[in-house]
Design a protein around this nucleic acid. Structure first.
Lengths: 221, 221
DNA sequence: GCAATAGTGTCTATTAGACAATATGGG
DNA sequence: CCCATATTGTCTAATAGACACTATTGC
């Protein structure tokens, strides 16, 4: 058995966030294997040292089983550990969060044998397996902390987006309404560095067309 | 051998910070065991699932071998991992940082067979073993990021301290000079919550005595 | 014109930085 | 009194929030 005496059992789990319309959502999957079979959990899986370059690669590999899209953004949150969090014995789970552009939400699907669901990260609506409720809370807290200070949720948006879409994305993450004018004022400072106008391209719609923007190459949070 | 196929080799490392006078310092130890014997490194050691409740407990146990003082503050930074970072094979190191009050700096000593040193975390002055240069940089970055927004370095100070000492500690961490007036103005908002005046107690000295303060019970960063 | 959304301008209360002024000890 | 440090006050420029205003489309 795995987590007996000398070595702990190591897994990676991923909180994959996206936007469903204007609402922030996180992916949960129904477990098809023991332990905790049939319960909902964050996607995750055992580290395979023979396959994985490092923990981040392990998380990407696990995620690739669910998502047909090369996840652009993956960030480590922290490690959870202990004797009791997994019935298989002393274990470590290294948690990551990842961001999926809203127009790629369909790239996520379960296998025939497993169910997936996008849920409100503040109220998953079900008790998650293992310590995944805590994990989710921690991932969400870090995502929010990050956006406060140095980040923009550009990775949740399509390749072309309007400033209003960007504002909605920020509001979805923080859960608070933002003032349009103040928001745009702040954006002016970052414009050119992390994203730029796409000259002459505008969103179609029933009302005044909105200027399109795009991420710049080499953009980082 | 350890990190072969199925299970990685797991260690914890600790960046232990303190103040030497007004300067921020971090503990490095000379390794007495293979691999990398004789090189300087952050203190660390192998996880022992039979002894350790979780990773934080493991870090505390490792640290207790060097420090005769119950470390009040220990925080996880992140995990480092991969096939090549440790010659023993596929490994994970979970990094923590800890804060030692400046008046307890003498509680740290090596065994007869090992040397210790307090070094400037910005310029350790020697190349550290494994990936500990990167680890140290990351720990320092997180310490600085934390102090920016929600933290005060109260854990680096003795039980009683003056506001000037607190300011010096903040400056030591950020590396930047702070304005006295603005600093105290900000402190007024936190006073009572995280620390309080000790009425009638003043620092002795050649000049005007300074009011002593102390941490409040149950204070958290 | 009207509704709806995009985008800009303005006013004000708050804040942060710079720096001056005052207070209090030891010699 | 002088010096060094503690502590407080003041001035000002920058900022953030609230909200009003203008612009542009489809109908």
């Amino acid at each position: 058995m795995a987590g007996d005496k000398l070595f702990p059992f190591v897994t990676t789990d991923v909180a994959l966030f996206t936007l469903d319309g204007d609402a922030l959502r996180v992916l949960v999957v129904k477990r098809t294997n023991e332990p905790e079979r049939g319960r909902w959990a964050l996607p995750g899986g055992a580290l395979k040292p023979s396959l994985d370059e490092d923990l981040a690669a392990s998380a990407r590999r696990v995620l690739a089983e669910k998502v047909r899209f090369d996840i652009p953004y993956l960030e480590q949150v922290c490690a959870f550990s202990g004797r009791d969090r997994d019935s298989r014995g002393w274990s470590i789970s290294v948690l990551f969060y990842a961001l999926l552009p809203k127009d790629r939400i369909d790239a996520v699907a379960g296998h025939k044998t497993e169910a997936i669901e996008w849920v409100d990260p503040d109220r998953p609506g079900r008790e998650l397996a293992f310590d995944h409720d805590r994990q989710l809370a921690e991932a969400l807290a870090q995502l929010r902390a990050k956006i406060e200070h140095d980040a923009l949720p550009l990775h949740l948006l399509p390749d072309r987006f309007t400033l209003t879409e960007l504002q909605r994305a920020c509001e979805a993450i923080t859960g608070e309404a933002l003032d349009k004018s103040a928001f745009r004022r702040r954006l002016k400072l970052r414009e050119g560095k992390e994203f730029v106008e796409v000259p002459g391209e505008f969103a179609e719609g029933a009302h005044r067309p909105a200027q399109y923007y795009r991420r710049t190459r080499g953009f980082r949070f």
